[in-house]
Nucleic acid binder design. Sequence first.
DNA 1: TAGTGGTCTAGACCACCGC
DNA 2: CGGTGGTCTAGACCACTAG
Lengths: 237, 237
Amino acid sequence: MPQTIAARIEADIEAQILSGTWPPGSRLPYEHVMMEQYRCSRMTVSKVLTGMSARGLIVRRRRAGSFVAIPNADRAVLQIEDFAQQALHSGQSYRHAIHHRSLRALRRGELTALGLATSGQVLEVHCRHELDGIPVAWEERLILVDAVPAIIDEMFLSIPPGTWLLQHVPWNKAEHVISAVNASPQQARQLSIEEGAACLELHRRTWLLGSLVTDVSLTYPGSRYRFSGCFSPGGPA
Amino acid sequence: MPQTIAARIEADIEAQILSGTWPPGSRLPYEHVMMEQYRCSRMTVSKVLTGMSARGLIVRRRRAGSFVAIPNADRAVLQIEDFAQQALHSGQSYRHAIHHRSLRALRRGELTALGLATSGQVLEVHCRHELDGIPVAWEERLILVDAVPAIIDEMFLSIPPGTWLLQHVPWNKAEHVISAVNASPQQARQLSIEEGAACLELHRRTWLLGSLVTDVSLTYPGSRYRFSGCFSPGGPA
DNA sequence: TAGTGGTCTAGACCACCGC
DNA sequence: CGGTGGTCTAGACCACTAG
C-alpha cells in the first residue's frame, strides 16, 4: 500500500485500467467524486490526474471529464548509453581511436541537408569505438563550431567526441533515425566485418536552443550490437 | 511569453539550463526564493520543479536543494506507428495478409526463452504488411491465449494482429530490441528483396500486470523502412 | 449556461539530512 | 538543529465546452 494519498489514488486508477475494469475510452470519476471518496482536497486529485495525463495514460477534457487514453502507436524508449559507461557496467575495456579530425567550412550541399540558413565552420571527426579490442561502432560526426567554440581546442585524445559533448553542452532537442544498411567496403574495413554484413545505422542530430550542435552517424555491426529498451505507460522504467 | 506563472517559471529555468548559465550539477534557487521572485505561492514553484524532476531534467535533494541533472546517456524515443495509421497520414494504401494462424501449446524451449513458469496455449500468427502493394514488414507473433481469451475467435481478416491487440488489451510494460540482420532466404522471399539485404528487426514483448501478452518479431527491409523519433529533455515532442 | 478541468493561494505539518 | 523538499488543505476564480 503506497504511503501517500496521491500515490494511493494513482495506484488505484492504474489498477482499474490494467484490470480492464476501465477500458480505453471510459470516463474516470469526476475530480469532486474522488475528492470525497479519498477524503482529500481537490488539488491532490488534480495533481495525480495531471501527472497521468502528462504521461499519456489518460486524456482530460473540460466539461467532459477524464478518460482512459486510447493508444494508437507504440512508443519505444531506447537508452543509448555512452560506450565508456557501458564498458564500466560490463567490465569490458573501452578504447576509441580518432581516424580523422579537420576544421573546415560547411559545404553547400550540407547546408541544405542540415537545414541551415547561414554557413559556418564545422569540425569533422571520424572515430572508431572498440570494446575489448573489438570494433563496435564507426562514428562520423560534424560539430558546428559556432555553437561550441570551445571544441576547437579539443583533440579527443582521452575523451571521444560524443562524451565530450555530453559533458560540455546541454541539448534542447534530438532527432534520431535508425536504419539498416549493408556494410560498405570502407565500413567493413573499419569494423573488421564482411562487406555487405547487416549494420545498424543511427543518425542523430542535436540542437541547442534551435541551433544545430552536432550531426552524427554511428554504424554498428549487426552481429555485435543492438538497441534495447523498456517502456511503461507509467514512464520509462 | 507563456500564459501561466508555472509555464513562465519552467521556461525560465529551461532557458538558464540551455544557455549554459546553469550548467549540469549547479544548484537552482531555493523554492522560497523563486516564490518571492515570481510573487507566487510555494505550491506553484513546487509543482514545476516536481514535474521537471519527473522528467529527469533536474534532481531534488532534501536539505540540499534542486540541481540541474547530469545526463549520462542519450535517450531516443521512437514512435512506432500502426501501419494503418501511417497509411492514412501519407495517403498510401495499407493491406495485410495472414500467412499462418495456428493454436498450439507452448514448446519447452519457448517457455524458457519467454521467461514463463507455467505452460499454456499460444496463438501463432505470421503476417505480411504492405503499403501500396509493396511489402514493408514481415511479422511473426505469439499471443498468450490465457492473457487474451477473446483472441481465439479472431481471424484477423480485416484487422492485423497488432492493431487488434492495441484496441483490445491495455499493456503494462513493453521491451524492445532493435537489431540489424541479413535477410534469410525465407525473409527475402516474403519481403521481395535480395537474400542478404540488410533488414531492421524489431523484437517486442508486451506485458499486462506482469504476465506476458505477446511476443512479436517484425522484419523491415532496410531499404524501405526506418525508425525515427524526436526527444526533448522537456518530454517527447 | 452549468459544470468540468486549469490554475493559483496562503497557509500547514512532516521527514529527512547536511551542517 | 535548522532548513530543505514532500505533501496536503480548503478554499478561490477563470476558461472552456458539451448539452
